[in-house]
Amino acid sequence: MGLTSTTVLALAVASAVLLFVGTVWCWPRLARRSWPAVGGRVGLLLATQVMLFASVGLAANQAFGFYASWADLFGQEKDQGVVVDHTPGVRSDGSLRVTETRKAREGGDFRPHIGGQVQKVDIVGRKSHIATPAYVYLPPEYFQPQYRDRTFPASVVLTGYPGTARALVDKLRFPGTALKLAEEGRMQPMILVMLRPTVAPPRDTECVDIPDGPQTETFFASDLPEAVGDHYRVDKGPGAWGIIGDSTGGYCALKLAMHHPRVYAAGAGLSAYYKAPIDATTGDLFHGDKGLRDRADLLWYLKHMPAPDTSLLVTSSKVGESNYKDTLEFIERAKDTNLTRISSIILESGGHNFNTWRREIPGTLQWISGRLGDQRK
């Protein structure tokens, strides 16, 4: 049974309840001052506490999608990683492979020309040699005969760290929200490419090209748009691509739009931070290279580098988000460039969680839709 299985959660809750009842029932018999009685009391209390915390942890993981599997939880995930192509300069026909299809939203129509479709894919980067799974949302218009020659704008959507790509579909409901907004005429039909920024697990690479390590910025800036564009009918002109992310994914989205404005015409960072951390999950990202470190500091970048010709959206809340002051500073620095276009969503209150991001996603999708393709502003 998987970590996110409802059965596992139900068993944990049932065990916690049974242990609590058992503790109450057996407590009088263990009231003696003998070592066996004391050991029995300690054991029952400890087991009850463990199962209680396990139940809470499993429920939180199901709600917020922190870990996808037991291997992911214990840092033992090995099914995805870096793939090396031993034929330099030769492109593989398998840079993107569809492995599964599903409905775009719960309760929606299975027929793709009416309800759209979500495809699970495997992507292999030609330059970075990174392989990762992703989900691709295709709007209903993609399958309708009258639009068979039409191309569509696309947006990359990133989770936080560690995150699960499926949470973008099931928990944050990006495909269902995009479908609803398009039906209401509030955004144009758009392809969404949903994945996590952890493309070289379990390391948190912060979308950096690490010296002698995973080239994750290259993957997102070059390989991913190329692989998706070759497989799907994505617009080829300027302003075809946008990028959205939350938390770590939000930092990546802003950075990629700033570093590669010719690739990403718009970038939205939900609850983003503005400087790559260095900790046990990232390791040494820059290998002592001050230039690389400064380039990854977005506040420094706006002050010292040529202003990127791109549109940026940042979000925060006055109460509940730790990035509020940095977000205000980022807005002011972007405004001072007179070239980088900056927008924001500032909530009165909202924590660093799925509930907050679900409140921001409709506005974010509508904003980015208006800045891509023919509707670019």
Rank of each mutant, 00 (worst) to 15 (best):
T6Q: 15
F20L: 05
A134W: 10
T310C: 12
G108K: 03
E106A: 06
L328D: 01
L172Q: 00
G116D: 07
K275E: 12
F110W: 11
L313K: 08
D246N: 08
V193E: 01
A240I: 06
R150M: 04
G2N: 15
V118T: 02
L192S: 08
T198F: 00
E100T: 00
L299F: 05
L18N: 07
T164Y: 04
Q49F: 15
L138D: 03
Q119I: 02
T159A: 13
W241Y: 15
V314S: 01
K318L: 02
L172W: 07
F64L: 08
R173H: 12
D294F: 14
G75L: 03
T315C: 06
G43H: 04
L254T: 06
G89N: 08
E141D: 13
W70H: 03
G269L: 06
L270I: 08
T340G: 10
P261C: 14
E332Q: 06
P238F: 11
P139F: 05
K275C: 06
R371C: 14
H113V: 02
M1I: 01
L224S: 09
L9E: 12
R293T: 06
A131T: 13
T177Q: 02
K275W: 09
R186T: 11
T337P: 01
T87K: 10
E77V: 04
F286A: 10
L18E: 10
S349M: 00
A68G: 09
L302H: 12
G39V: 06
V21Y: 03
G185H: 15
I123K: 09
Q146I: 05
S343H: 15
G283Q: 12
G65C: 02
L44M: 12
T23K: 00
L138A: 02
G229S: 08
G89F: 09
R203D: 07
L52T: 15
G245V: 07
P214F: 04
T48Q: 05
A134G: 13
E100F: 05
Q117L: 02
P197N: 01
L365Y: 10
N323I: 08
I345F: 15
R32V: 04
P197T: 02
N338W: 05
V50N: 06
E329P: 01
V314C: 04
K275P: 07
T216V: 12
M194P: 13
D279K: 13
L192K: 12
A200D: 11
P145I: 00
A134C: 08
L270C: 05
G350E: 07
P277F: 11
Y274G: 10
R333G: 06
H352K: 02
T159C: 14
E217F: 06
D309N: 10
G94W: 11
W367S: 10
T364Y: 15
Y135W: 06
T6V: 13
P197G: 05
V24R: 03
N61T: 08
P162H: 12
F64S: 09
V38R: 12
